[in-house]
Amino acid sequence: MTRQVKVLVLTGYGLNCDMETAHAFKMAGAAPERVHINSLITGDVRLEDYQILVFGGGFSWGDDHGAGVVQAVRIMTGLGDRIRHFIAEGNLVMGICNGFQTLVNTGLLPGFDGDYTRREVALLHNDCGNFRDQWVDLSVNQESPCVFTKGMDFLPLPVRHGEGKFYAAPEVIHRLEVSGQVVLRYAGRDGSPAQGAFPLNPNGAVNDIAGICDPTGRVFGLMPHPEAFTHFTHHPDWTRLKAEGRILQEKDLPGLNIFRNAVAFFKK
C-alpha cells in the first residue's frame, strides 16, 4: 500500500472552510490535517511533512483591508521562504476563495518566471456591489498545466464572495492567457464563455477568469468552492436531476475530482 498523501489545511484567524476542505481530501483518499496558522509559524507543525498546502475559504482577519491581505502579510512574514521551498520541492499549493485572494496578495500567484513574491493580479469588489452566493458554471482550459483540473472540461460550483472580480493590467492578462495559466472561466450552461454577462459571471471578472495557476500548474487558486460539491445533494438541482433519473454517483462529482487529481499527482 502506498503512503497516504498528507494535506495541511490552514485554520485560525477567521478562516472557516477548513472542516469541509479536509473532508473533501479525506474522501479523495488523502490524510488531511487542520493546522492553526500559528502552529505552522512557530514550527510546532512542519510544512515539510506535507505534500499539499491549502489556503481555504473564510474571512481571514475579518478581511477589513482587502480580502486575504493581512493573511498574506502574516504568511509571507512568517513562512515565505518555507513555502517557496515547498513549491520548489514539487509539492502542491491550493487557494480557495479567501485562499485565492491570499495567494495573489502573497505573490505566490501568478508566479511569472519563478518569482513567487510579486503582486501582479488583484481580486476586487464584485461589480454587483455585494457579497453573493450562487452556483456558477465553469469551463476548464484543457491547455492549462494545472494538475488539479486534469481531464476536466466543465464543472458547476458555488461562489460565495464579495471580492472576486479578477483584475490585472492588460499585459498581465495577456501573459496569463498565452501561458495557459488561466484555468477556469465563468461560462453558460453550455460551456461557452459568460463574456462578462451577470449573473453567469457573478463579479465582473476580466475575461471571465475564475481561477489561475502558476507556470508549473502546481499552485492553483480559484474563487469557486470545490469542497462544496462533494455530495450529490450539494447540487442546487439535485431533486430535479433525481426526478429525471440523472443521479450523480460519487465518482462523477466534479468538485471532488479536483481533490482527487491533487492526490493522484503524488501517486504516479
Binding site: H23, D133, A228, D237
Partner: peptide
C-alpha cells in the same frame, strides 16, 4: 432573492435543500 444571495448558505458544505429552489433557483 437579493437578500438571500447576500447570505452564504453553503459554507460548511452542509447544504441539502437551499433557500432558493427550482429550475432557475
Amino acid at each position: 432573492e437579493w437578500i438571500v444571495r447576500q447570505y452564504d448558505h453553503e459554507v460548511q458544505a452542509n447544504s441539502v435543500i437551499k433557500p432558493l429552489v427550482g429550475r432557475e433557483r
